[in-house]
Amino acid sequence: MSYPGLKERTTPHLAACLAGHGQWSAARALADELTDPTYRGRALAMIAARRGPSPEGRLLLAEALALAPWDELVEEFATVAPELVPLLVDLVLADAEPATETP
């Protein structure tokens, strides 16, 4: 039985599992097989989270952010760049505030 979109939805998680077991090259190769930019970005972000706040993790996160919307990568962002979470909070809160009209 075939499930449409199964590969795209599960591959980021599988790449993260590989990375979690130190199989960095295999994780990256699996992520690179994805053709949909959003899923590829998600996979890279999940690998980045396994690297943590390291130069490698930040580079992977930067690649991920170029491919996928940042609001889908918040948890990984917090793991890789925890010092920037307050800026994300400010960004979200500022966006949520109603616009004020000036006369």
Score class of each variant (00 low, 15 high):
residue 3 Y to E: 14
residue 5 G to Q: 05
residue 6 L to S: 11
residue 6 L to G: 00
residue 8 E to V: 01
residue 8 E to S: 10
residue 9 R to F: 03
residue 11 T to S: 14
residue 13 H to D: 10
residue 17 C to I: 15
residue 17 C to N: 13
residue 18 L to F: 14
residue 19 A to L: 05
residue 20 G to K: 10
residue 20 G to Y: 03
residue 24 W to P: 02
residue 24 W to V: 07
residue 26 A to H: 13
residue 27 A to R: 09
residue 27 A to Q: 07
residue 27 A to G: 03
residue 29 A to F: 12
residue 29 A to G: 03
residue 31 A to I: 02
residue 32 D to A: 14
residue 32 D to H: 05
residue 32 D to Q: 12
residue 33 E to P: 00
residue 33 E to C: 06
residue 34 L to S: 06
residue 34 L to M: 07
residue 34 L to Y: 05
residue 36 D to R: 14
residue 36 D to V: 10
residue 36 D to K: 12
residue 37 P to I: 09
residue 37 P to E: 01
residue 38 T to D: 13
residue 39 Y to S: 15
residue 42 R to H: 12
residue 42 R to D: 14
residue 44 L to T: 05
residue 44 L to A: 10
residue 45 A to R: 04
residue 45 A to F: 06
residue 46 M to Q: 14
residue 46 M to D: 07
residue 50 R to S: 07
residue 50 R to P: 07
residue 50 R to K: 12
residue 50 R to Y: 01
residue 51 R to H: 12
residue 51 R to E: 15
residue 52 G to C: 04
residue 52 G to E: 04
residue 55 P to K: 03
residue 55 P to D: 07
residue 55 P to L: 02
residue 56 E to M: 02
residue 57 G to W: 00
residue 57 G to T: 01
residue 59 L to W: 06
residue 60 L to N: 03
residue 60 L to T: 03
residue 61 L to D: 10
residue 62 A to Q: 11
residue 63 E to G: 05
residue 63 E to D: 15
residue 64 A to V: 00
residue 64 A to F: 05
residue 64 A to E: 03
residue 65 L to A: 11
residue 65 L to N: 11
residue 66 A to M: 09
residue 68 A to N: 10
residue 68 A to Y: 08
residue 68 A to P: 08
residue 69 P to R: 12
residue 69 P to S: 06
residue 70 W to F: 15
residue 71 D to A: 03
residue 73 L to C: 09
residue 73 L to E: 01
residue 75 E to A: 15
residue 75 E to D: 14
residue 76 E to V: 09
residue 76 E to R: 02
residue 77 F to S: 07
residue 78 A to L: 02
residue 78 A to C: 10
residue 79 T to W: 03
residue 81 A to L: 12
residue 82 P to L: 09
residue 84 L to C: 04
residue 86 P to S: 07
residue 86 P to E: 01
residue 88 L to T: 02
residue 89 V to L: 10
residue 91 L to W: 15
residue 92 V to Y: 08
residue 93 L to C: 10
residue 93 L to S: 11
residue 93 L to H: 09
residue 94 A to W: 00
residue 95 D to Y: 05
residue 96 A to V: 00
residue 96 A to G: 01
residue 97 E to R: 15
residue 100 T to R: 13
residue 100 T to K: 12
residue 101 E to Y: 03
residue 101 E to N: 02
residue 101 E to L: 09
residue 102 T to S: 11
residue 102 T to G: 11
